[in-house]
Simulated assay, not measured.
Amino acid sequence: MGCSHYSERVEKVELPHLKVNGVEIAEDALARELQYHPAASHGEALAAACRALIVRQLLLQRAEALGLVALCEEGEAEEEALIRQLLEREVVVPQADEASCRTWFEANPGRLIGPWRMSLRHVLLACAPDDLDSRAQLRETAEALIVELREHPQRFAEKAMRFSDCPSRDDGGELGWIEPGQTVAEFEKRLLRREPGLLEMPLESRYGLHVVELLEREGGEPLSYEEARPQIAMHLQTQVLQRAIGQYIGVLAGEAEIEGFEFAGADSPLVQ
């Protein structure tokens, strides 16, 4: 959401006067921060923005107390550099050990897979994510297309050129070879475990309803433990680091005088 959207909402709601150890957080800073916290309600967005600015202030005050001097990496702002250096100094996390990695691997069979690519074609019936009535109608259209294509698979290109809202319609709906990250997660989740063929149900994504035929898939086999271990270790390390940073922020908050907001713990490790 853009700044103007939140500005309209901010004008209608009084912003809290935030202070951290006597240091005031300006209302215009809070108004700007709101744009980075889209939420279902203004209250949720405001709470997230308050928390983020308080966490940032706590960390910067601690960095100043320790006398840290910002050593900026390429493209890094001074405050971000101070926060990074502070966390690197104060939050020490042990490396994931062999037993932890193997336990995770055994508890998540087949979750990590090797490189893959897939070839597919589709018919997109475009619709906004929140237009539920239109989506219901388009689902009926998509299901009817699937029934017809089961009986006449040779008509797929014809149907794509006639009905699809995707530019691929000019190529009969063909998207060519797709690799990880080149399409929406909804496609990857539904198609990676499937054999080639026409999906029996429409695939729903943020863009609308898709009639999809998986033409071919290569790779995507589950990794062995030895192949998966580096990814597992990084995943576990990230989880432990997030918990450790959350606890560290909680300690700083517990020792601080915070006005204008009830700061109950820290769920998010870093300022958003």
Rank of each mutant, 00 (worst) to 15 (best):
105 F>L: 06
194 R>I: 00
169 R>S: 14
100 S>V: 02
122 H>E: 06
98 E>C: 01
245 I>H: 06
134 S>R: 13
156 F>V: 11
159 K>D: 09
109 P>C: 08
83 I>D: 01
176 G>L: 06
126 A>S: 15
95 Q>L: 12
242 Q>P: 07
268 S>V: 12
262 E>K: 03
175 L>A: 10
112 L>Y: 15
214 L>W: 11
191 L>A: 05
92 V>F: 03
72 C>Q: 13
133 D>P: 00
253 A>D: 07
27 E>Y: 01
29 A>G: 09
238 T>H: 05
182 Q>A: 14
263 F>H: 14
153 P>V: 00
136 A>D: 02
19 K>F: 12
45 A>G: 13
146 I>K: 08
101 C>V: 07
251 V>R: 14
49 A>P: 10
233 A>D: 03
107 A>C: 03
251 V>G: 06
126 A>L: 05
68 L>W: 09
177 W>Q: 04
3 C>D: 11
51 R>T: 06
227 E>V: 11
231 Q>M: 15
187 F>S: 07
91 V>I: 04
103 T>I: 02
207 Y>S: 15
238 T>N: 05
215 L>T: 04
25 I>S: 00
237 Q>V: 00
228 A>V: 12
155 R>W: 08
142 A>V: 07
89 R>I: 01
103 T>G: 10
234 M>R: 15
234 M>N: 05
190 R>W: 00
123 V>F: 07
112 L>D: 13
220 G>K: 02
50 C>L: 06
247 Q>H: 14
155 R>V: 01
267 D>N: 11
162 R>C: 02
184 V>L: 14
150 R>I: 05
4 S>H: 04
65 A>V: 00
53 L>E: 01
221 E>P: 04
6 Y>M: 14
238 T>S: 04
197 G>Q: 04
104 W>L: 10
251 V>I: 09
36 Y>T: 04
169 R>C: 10
73 E>A: 10
142 A>E: 10
